[in-house]
Computed example of a mutant assay.
Amino acid sequence: MIRVTLDGAAVGTGRAAALPPVSASFAPGVPTVVATEGGIRPTVLSLAASGRMKLDAGSVTAVELADDGDGDAHDHVLRPAALRRAIALIDTPLVADHSDEVSIATVVREELALAGVRGSRVELSVDRRDRHPFGSLGGADRLRLLIELALLRPDVAALVITSPERHGGEPALWWRVVRETAARGIAVLVVTDAATLAHLERLPEPEPDTSAASHSPHPAPPASPLAESRTS
């Protein structure tokens, strides 16, 4: 399990900055949502948060959490290469997205190749529609499939999900997938827009969960996971 922290992470300067300074943190238990607007900023933020973008200011660090979860001296900072291996980009435009026209089977094969899994068929609850276009999947099903495939990669302990709202549908459906993933001990950052963030903030709080999440060595913090940081 890891905790990833952005401390004033920025790319470029002034009004034309590709990414104004962002400070946020994501860790297992509760997903973090950051809103940013304009052009390629969601992609730039996702690249920065996963250690894949050179910063002009600030920093991004990932700490592997000790088993006791106390944040003591047993935690240690990951080196840049290990940070990149530990964080998977999910559906990031221009970087890690898939064409809606390709088949679901093609997406699965490509993601399995990234995970180093070959010679086997993996069932991932896509209702046997593997010959259908990837774009035929609803937003929540699409996200769940990409998450499960990414988690097959060695060393992945965190996810950065980019602009899930762009595929339409009710945000509450894919937000449930995100929350369930974080509860499994995965650090999750969602990069979205201000309108979607506001919508998520209005959703009712989920019922208390007494399943695996409540027994996690790193339980969810009491603070709200939403609106930890916004960019302009």
Rank of each mutant, 00 (worst) to 15 (best):
V188L: 03
V190C: 08
R176V: 00
L226T: 03
E228Q: 15
R176F: 00
G185T: 06
A198S: 14
A172K: 13
A227W: 02
I186D: 04
V177E: 09
P217F: 08
L189W: 01
A213D: 08
A195G: 13
P206W: 04
H199D: 15
D193Q: 10
G169A: 09
V178S: 02
L189A: 05
G168S: 10
H199T: 15
R176L: 01
E207P: 06
R166T: 08
A194K: 05
A212L: 11
W174P: 01
L197P: 01
A213H: 05
E201Y: 00
P204H: 10
E201M: 09
V177H: 01
E201W: 00
R179N: 06
A187T: 09
E201A: 10
E228D: 13
A172V: 14
T210F: 14
G168T: 11
E207G: 10
S224F: 02
P225F: 02
P204I: 09
T196F: 04
A194D: 14
P204L: 10
L173Y: 09
R179Y: 02
S229C: 14
R179A: 07
P217R: 11
P219I: 01
A227I: 03
H218G: 10
R176P: 00
L197W: 01
R230V: 09
V177A: 04
E228M: 14
E170S: 14
T210V: 14
S224D: 15
R184T: 06
T181N: 02
E165W: 11
E228K: 11
D209V: 12
H199G: 12
L173N: 14
A220H: 04
L200T: 06
S229H: 13
H199Y: 11
